[in-house]
Simulated scan of single mutants.
Amino acid sequence: MAATNGFTDDLMLRYLVPEHVKSLLVPGTDPQRERVRSLLVSVYAPASLDIRSVESVEVVHKEFQTAVHASVAVHGSWDKAIPTTEQARATIEIPATPPVHWIDMSLETVVVVKAARADSLLASVKAEAAWAAADGAGARQDAFERPYQLQYAQPPPFEPTAPARSLPLRVSALFFDRLDLADALRRLNQAKRAVDAASPQPAAHDGGALLASSAWLAVFPSTATDEPSRTTEQLVGDLLAIQGYVAAFETAP
């Protein structure tokens, strides 16, 4: 459960201003828009969709302190003896009160990108050289065992002048008033599982199946401005990236 603190309150007040939300997603120090790219690839598999550039980001909906109820079920068995040698058994599910996870800021965005397909398409199926088939059941067995060669075509080359495409992207942000990585990862993991369980199965897009219901952004207070602090922020970002999350650092107002 998210703790109530001044840092969270300050960030909610800051992100009332649309320009501040935009600068969180696309910082001025990020001309290549790597933060948005990282958020995208946590949802859209880079193995099937090669994002070449981010053209724009639009926030279409914003919500603070969204409650997500984790689904919990208690399983049990009930046995009853009946007047014969048989036995009846039934399995029941008793719903329990689920824990609540709070998303500090939920964003529904549309990201316009230039992208190319990265996966190969099946071009042809070719059977191996013909064989002398036996009559009857032997012929049918050979037909099932006959090897095939699958040939894949190269994905089409990226065309920079092709129209851009719009990708819907949900961003779930958690605010942390201090740099406690163990606590941050636990909260992120718990909240992500709850959101994925509570959300409908992500629909597939023409580049492949989606990896998750939402991209996740962890916002920490900025440290000092000397070189060691920047190194720390980079290491924190690298650690969270391994888990599929994106880190951001903000100065409290």
Rank of each mutant, 00 (worst) to 15 (best):
E34V: 11
R178H: 09
P160V: 00
L13G: 10
S48N: 04
H205L: 01
D10A: 12
P18G: 09
P163H: 01
P168R: 10
V74M: 13
D196F: 05
P147S: 09
L167M: 06
L121Y: 06
D196C: 08
E233F: 01
A241Q: 03
F7R: 15
A132L: 03
V246D: 06
I103L: 02
H20R: 13
V125R: 09
H75M: 15
A115F: 09
K114L: 03
Q141N: 12
V110F: 10
L122S: 06
G207T: 04
G6N: 11
F176K: 00
T85K: 11
V246N: 03
R52S: 12
Q65L: 14
D50F: 10
A184Y: 12
Q87D: 04
Q234E: 13
V246Y: 04
D226Q: 02
E227Q: 03
R14A: 13
P160T: 14
P99R: 09
Y152F: 05
L210D: 03
H61R: 11
A164Y: 07
F249I: 06
T225L: 12
R52L: 07
Y245F: 09
L24Q: 14
W131Q: 13
V43M: 06
T29N: 15
M105L: 03
P95Y: 00
S42K: 00
P168H: 14
L188K: 15
V26E: 06
F220M: 05
I94H: 02
P147I: 04
A47I: 02
T231C: 07
G28K: 08
E93L: 08
P253I: 03
A132F: 09
G28T: 04
V36F: 01
V68Q: 05
S53N: 02
E145M: 09
I51G: 14
A129S: 04
G28A: 13
L24T: 06
T8L: 08
R146H: 15
A139E: 11
G136V: 10
F175V: 00
K22A: 11
D104T: 01
P221S: 09
A215T: 07
D30C: 02
N5M: 00
A252Y: 02
R165K: 14
A133I: 15
R178T: 04
V26G: 01
L121M: 02
G28V: 12
S56P: 07
